[in-house]
């Protein structure tokens, strides 16, 4: 196959203009974790079933295990490392902490980023909407009750801040 397979990729990563060289078919999850050191992006199933590798691409939740390097070009990518400001946690992160929605923490980055996506599209979700919105993110530690509660209170807080 002709043509170079090492790409020069320009994209925005957590608000910073970024250029990197990578094989065109390297998975985005590997670039973020191994090349960029952003280990808040987790990998579990590697096949789109668990949501641990969720990132935001142009504001929408996407699975970084099902994206290749070439697809980063010109995109705006946010990982869990990029959603807080300095030492201040994002309101959704705070709500997860305050509601005890974290046990081992492995699913948490994906849960939080899926919540960002959900609340962008639906700022006042019902409990059913929350369960449906997070149905692509698996937690194997405990029930989902505290996670649902964390999302509900985060939504309330964000609506309060907005008004």
């Amino acid at each position: 196959m002709e043509g170079t397979t090492i790409l020069n990729i320009h994209f925005t990563l957590n608000g910073v203009d970024t250029t990197l060289e990578a094989p065109a078919d390297r998975r985005v999850v590997d670039i973020l974790r191994e090349d960029m050191g952003l280990t808040g992006v987790k990998e579990c199933c590697g096949s789109g079933e668990c949501g641990a590798c969720t990132i935001l691409v142009d504001g929408k939740a996407r699975l970084s295990c099902l994206m290749l390097a070439a697809q980063l070009s010109k995109r705006n990518v946010t990982t869990i490392e990029g959603i807080s400001t300095g030492n201040d946690l994002h309101p959704i992160q705070k709500s997860f902490v305050e509601n005890g929605a974290v046990q081992c923490g492995f699913c948490t980055p994906g849960m939080v980023l899926s919540t960002v996506d959900l609340l962008t599209r639906n700022p006042a979700p019902s409990s059913e909407d929350i369960r449906e919105g997070l149905s692509g993110n698996l937690c194997r530690c405990t029930g989902y009750q505290m996670i649902v509660e964390a999302v509900r209170t985060a939504a309330e807080k964000l609506r309060g801040d907005a008004s």
Binding site: D25, R27, S47, G48
Partner: peptide, 24 residues
């Protein structure tokens, strides 16, 4: 297009195409 099937097959080694064309 979305890659939710093809990229899983690629990772599993059940397909090994010489190149990929992404439609996104």
């Amino acid at each position: 297009a979305g890659g939710t099937d093809i990229l899983v097959q690629l990772r599993a080694g059940t397909i090994a195409p010489p190149a990929l064309i992404c439609l996104e």
